[in-house]
Design a protein around this nucleic acid. Structure first.
Lengths: 243, 243
DNA sequence: AACACAGCAGTTGTCCTACAACTCGCGGCT
DNA sequence: AGCCGCGAGTTGTAGGACAACTGCTGTGTT
């Protein structure tokens, strides 16, 4: 079947929010400084004030800017620390590269097999359904910073995509088959290297942070269940918490 | 909505967002179901559509609802799992009680002393400024689930509040002296019990999750720096990640 | 000189009306 | 039965207007 892709047009407000985010992270507006007023942004982007405000509100709830009634919109100042945190759903490789490091992914294995009980509970699959399990290592500047197991219901993945799965971002593949995850529910745990089934020997004495998460697509269906083990100290986990 | 005129200082949109949040969490709208349309909500709350939309967008970025163009606003369904996650800034005791447990806090010590280098870097204090350091244990159902050290610049805390500090939520005290934190930047680390300076002996063999965080008030000034060590397994850490 | 305060320009918050874009189900048509 | 188009309902965007708030500035008083 041809990938007809119903345009899936990105709303204007979202485009603007993403552009402003990019400009802020790129340093075009320094931390603590005031952004152009809504009226000026309308002028710049050629959109209505409603749209600019929607975008601004979005950035505010992401914690990037602070909107003060009667005063203006200010870039939140965290003393130069990283702004991109766990609360935002992005691929690991993307995050690594935004930190200025070189991200690589090595696929250790890919198998189609029965889902285990845990996977069945998180994904929405029957007992006899298969899953595609991808085991990968994520490297930052040629150093292993994490290992992961991603499980995707086999019915969602055409066999032709098997080759591409795991050689890069899983997100990219899911995107291509129209299953972009828009939400993820993640549990955080601390584990010993010796307790990680998929880890190499040399991390047996290390501590790791386990991100145990389920990804959901726009319609609320689970599309992937993954366990990612990050080596403590090699990867900075930041969460921006807002009220 | 109650007609209690919640201090005209709180923007309407925010009041409505909080009310809708409360109603959703209370189960008035079941997961997956559609909320009233914007027009109906306008009618209900007696506000304009802009205001309702602002509130709705806020809930969407909190991950509570999903707004679909041309279709409606739906309560996000996570299969009954907890909605309140780390990405929301709330006191630990509050979170524990929302989980249906009995939260208690025991103050181990309170001292006024010089800030160490780490604290100086995170808080905005001079070399000769003092801080108030509070060491506490957090209990859920009479079991210690976390220990914490909170550091607050001494100039912010009147000596008269020393007594109240640490016997309950630090938030409550900060609130009272007009320094409500609205944002926090948290780092997550995995640590061994034996590496935690303030822990009891019996956790030496346990793993802990360290939440290393700085709290900021509305004007962006740091008001508190805290390290909280959670015993792995006794406390569920969830993050809702959105795109 | 120092201080209090009213005024003013600029900015965000809310309201109104109208239309565009999208979703989904209903009913007619092939 | 299956396809198609239409229309009602819903969210997205536009533009204009006024209210509420902030920070500064200049004025008047002490």
């Amino acid at each position: 079947m041809p990938s007809s892709t119903q345009t899936a047009r990105t709303p204007l407000a979202r485009q603007i929010a993403e552009d402003l985010r990019r400009r802020i992270v790129a340093g075009e507006f320094s931390p603590g400084s005031r952004l152009p007023s809504e009226a000026e942004l309308c002028e710049h982007y050629r959109v209505s004030r409603v749209t600019v405000r929607t975008a601004a509100k979005s950035l505010e709830s992401q914690g990037l800017v602070d909107i003060r009634h009667g005063s203006g919109m200010f870039v939140v100042d965290f003393g130069g620390q990283i702004r991109s945190g766990l609360q935002e759903l992005r691929s690991i490789t993307e995050t690594i590269e935004e930190l200025g490091l070189n991200a690589k992914v090595r696929r250790v294995s890919l198998t189609r097999r029965q889902a285990d009980e845990n996977e069945r509970a998180h994904l929405d699959v029957n007992d006899d359904d298969e899953i595609v399990a991808v085991h990968r290592e994520i490297l930052a500047d040629d150093e292993v910073v994490a290992v992961s197991i991603d499980a995707i219901p086999a019915r969602l993945v055409p066999a032709s995509e098997d080759a591409s799965l795991g050689n890069g971002s899983v997100f990219a593949v899911l995107d291509r088959i129209g299953l972009t995850p828009v939400r993820a529910l993640a549990e955080i745990h601390a584990v010993r290297g010796s307790d990680v089934p998929i880890a190499e020997d040399h991390v047996a004495d290390e501590l790791l942070i386990l991100l145990d998460q389920v990804h959901y697509d726009r319609s609320g269906d689970p599309v992937a269940y993954s366990k990612t083990y990050f080596v403590e100290g090699r990867f900075q986990f930041v969460i921006l918490r807002t009220r």
